[in-house]
């Protein structure tokens, strides 16, 4: 059964069309990877699924858990099970990370989550305030671990992160997408944007897509696609025989 279905989605910002008749289906228990050059609409896609305003939906629809969420508000989508790690999240003055965890999920064991991400020292810091690039990534993972979404979206979780922390983040993604369970038992899904694929050494992905000019041009096994990109660039994916 599909957890997420995107059908003929067209999206623009201002006068610029970013996504054109975009289609993507993700099953329960599957984690997909999105590759593609800058400006090709990957981040827009995630933002539109999350429900961030400012984007104009010109056509098509997004269905999550069988429900049309195309025009649903962000918080409703989050409560329905969609979670996103932001690439450059804002700092929130006066809000301690420990308190935000409790607000996101009153039942969460804040200290255990912080410990998992080696982030206990930041419990009483204002959310994202003065955090380095790598710290921001861990802060995002901490919040998602509290939120426990059914569908998690990660925008470049490996950029600006040192090797030691990439491993931590990869493990957290595996936890969020239930890769510690048998495939048949997994119900949670995810989509990850990565440029260089470093994170793929530390997490399990089931399928990958290459995006160019607002559409998917190629899909397949993540390892094979990454190899293809390394060998002949994104352009090499155009017209490839991989099934889209």
């Amino acid at each position: 059964m599909w957890l997420l279905e995107i059908e003929d989605l067209s999206v623009s910002i201002g006068s610029k069309q970013v996504l054109k008749n975009f289609n993507l289906r993700i099953s329960r228990g599957e984690t997909h990877v999105l590759f593609g050059p800058n400006g090709t609409g990957k981040t827009t896609l995630l933002n539109v699924i999350a429900g961030i305003p400012r984007y104009v939906i010109d056509g098509g629809r997004i269905v999550f858990k069988g429900e049309d969420i195309t025009h649903m508000s962000m918080d409703e989508r989050a409560r329905l099970g969609i979670g996103m790690a932001f690439q450059r999240p804002p700092a929130i003055r006066g809000l301690r990370l420990r308190d935000l965890i409790k607000i996101i999920n009153p039942k969460a064991d804040a200290m255990a989550i912080l410990k998992k991400m080696d982030f206990e020292a930041f419990a009483d810091r204002d959310v994202n305030r003065g955090f380095s690039g790598g710290e921001v990534k861990r802060s995002e993972m901490v919040q998602l671990l509290a939120q426990q979404p059914d569908f998690v979206m990660l925008d470049e979780p490996d950029s600006g992160v040192d090797l030691e922390n990439i491993k931590l983040i990869g493990e957290a993604i595996n936890t969020l997408t239930q890769k510690d369970q048998r495939p048949s038992q997994r119900t949670k899904s995810g989509v990850i944007i990565t440029h260089f694929g470093h994170i793929l050494d530390y997490m399990k992905a089931d399928r990958a897509h290459v995006m160019l000019g607002g559409s998917i041009v190629c899909s397949g096994n993540p390892g094979e696609i990454l190899e293809q990109i390394k060998k002949s660039g994104y352009e090499g994916c155009v017209g490839c025989t991989c099934p889209v």
């Binding site: 961030i52 962000m74 918080d75 989050a78 929130i92 809000l95 996101i104």
Partner: peptide, 19 residues
């Protein structure tokens, strides 16, 4: 940002105001 974590617009406003 806070709404993406499931807080309603009112809850998010209140959290930001308190902070």
């Amino acid at each position: 940002y806070l709404m993406s974590r499931g807080l309603s617009s009112e809850e998010a406003t209140s959290v930001i105001v308190r902070g």
